[in-house]
């Protein structure tokens, strides 16, 4: 399932002996049908890929299912491709997953509740910063 964590590279500025992750074996079953196979329709594949990039892998250390070697991530990719193939909308699949795993499973915070502030953050910071900076600018006298 999950590979040891320590085959990952590190940006770490301080490196010591690496911690290994939970020991999880792989199953003896190959990847799910559509885990590593693209959909024939390029538009559908694009929609699926776009969705997969926003879904967080459940058993990894912070990766999307689009770039994880974990088997469960592969199974989730297969699930998404199958459903897209059947004509389901990406938004519906996303909601279906959120229904099961909560907002944790998507990499975009929900645009409601307290996380809404997060989406307004750039504007908020620009506004505050702009106000502070304005004090430094001399009014042009005519």
């Amino acid at each position: 399932m999950m590979r040891f964590l320590n085959n990952r590279l590190t940006f770490a500025l301080v490196l010591t002996a690496l911690v290994s992750g939970p020991v999880q074996a792989d199953s003896r079953i190959g990847a799910a049908p559509l885990a590593n196979v693209q959909l024939a329709d390029p538009d559908q594949e694009k929609a699926a890929k776009h969705l997969m990039e926003t879904i967080r892998c459940l058993v990894c250390q912070g990766q999307s299912i689009a770039d994880s070697d974990a088997e469960l991530a592969g199974d989730m990719r297969s699930l998404i491709r199958e459903r897209i193939q059947k004509g389901e909308k990406p938004e519906a699949i996303r909601s279906w997953l959120i229904e099961r795993y909560g907002d944790w499973v998507v990499y975009a915070p929900p645009a409601r509740g307290s996380a809404l502030a997060l989406w307004l953050l750039p504007l908020l910071l620009l506004g505050v910063g702009g106000l502070v900076a304005r004090g430094r600018i001399r009014r042009r006298s005519r």
């Binding site: 990039e53 926003t54 967080r56 912070g62 999307s64 909560g102 907002d103 944790w104 499973v105 998507v106 990499y107 975009a108 915070p109 929900p110 307290s114 996380a115 997060l118 989406w119």
Partner: peptide, 11 residues
């Protein structure tokens, strides 16, 4: 605050 959320590239 009792919520679990993830923030990544889509944000």
């Amino acid at each position: 605050m009792g919520q679990q959320i993830s923030i990544g590239p889509p944000y």
